[in-house]
């Protein structure tokens, strides 16, 4: 810390080196320890608005039984998604961010009391529909999953690379629509691999059920890994 003399005051140089995400990351680390202690697998689902997160979750929740699943769903406004998902018979908490474009770890922590963690194998966090802002906010999850639908265009991974880089799995949703669109599947897959070499991609349709088995098996395998660490 060097100091220079001025008139009646001093100028000082301060080395700070503090990260803007540090407050969020502290809460996320606390959440992660709590989930690990209970052996709960936590998935953070991120996509653009309208890519079919909620529709896919409706099918997923119905078919994951006997695994015990809960959902925290983030939206800028309304409880509509939570109401849809509650019809699947699982505990759902809605996080209304009132303008904020992403979920933060503190929002997850303050809504956790609404789901009973003692009776849980999987917690799915459905983030606010947005491909940019949520990607940098750690929520204490094990894995991020990015969804991109066939109607969105093949260049999504190139335009929004950070989330494709950070996510473990990409779900190509609305796969049933592909034959009706000018959709170049190979190009989308190439673009995903350009951003995240070796990224796992599953093609699914919530409407026809196409590919759902592979997605459900992927979740079950991750639950098994998490619980084997827990024991």
């Amino acid at each position: 810390m060097c100091e220079t003399q001025g008139e009646g005051h001093q100028h000082r140089h301060l080395e700070v080196h503090r990260h803007a995400m540090e407050a969020n990351d502290q809460v996320a680390a606390r959440l992660r320890r709590g989930f690990a202690a209970r052996g709960i697998l936590v998935l953070n689902l991120i996509s653009a608005p309208g890519s079919g997160k909620t529709a896919l979750l409706e099918r997923t929740l119905e078919q994951l039984r006997p695994l015990r699943v809960s959902v925290l769903v983030g939206d800028v406004e309304t409880e509509r998604d939570a109401e849809r998902l509650r019809r699947c018979g699982v505990p759902v908490a809605q996080i209304v961010t009132a303008g904020t474009c992403h979920l933060e770890a503190g929002m997850v922590e303050s809504h956790l009391a609404e789901v009973d963690q003692r009776e849980l194998d999987v917690l799915i966090v459905e983030n606010v529909g947005n491909l940019v802002c949520p990607s940098g906010f750690d929520l204490g999850e094990d894995l991020k999953v990015v969804l991109v639908s066939t109607t969105e265009g093949e260049d999504k991974p190139l335009k929004y690379p950070a989330i494709f880089h950070r996510a473990e799995l990409a779900l190509l949703t609305k796969a049933d629509l592909a034959p009706h669109l000018d959709f170049d599947r190979e190009e989308l897959l190439r673009n995903i691999q350009a951003v995240h070499p070796g990224m796992k991609v599953l093609e699914v349709s919530a409407k026809t059920g196409l590919g759902l088995d592979l997605w459900l098996d992927w979740i079950r395998a991750k639950v098994g890994e998490k619980q084997s660490l827990h024991v």
Binding site: G6, G8, H9, Q10, H11, R12, H13, L14, E15, V16, H17, R18, H19, A20, M21
Partner: peptide, 14 residues
Amino acid sequence: DRLEVRDMEVRTDD
């Protein structure tokens, strides 16, 4: 991969 406050110049009164 970080957004950080690296360093600062500040004024302190004598």
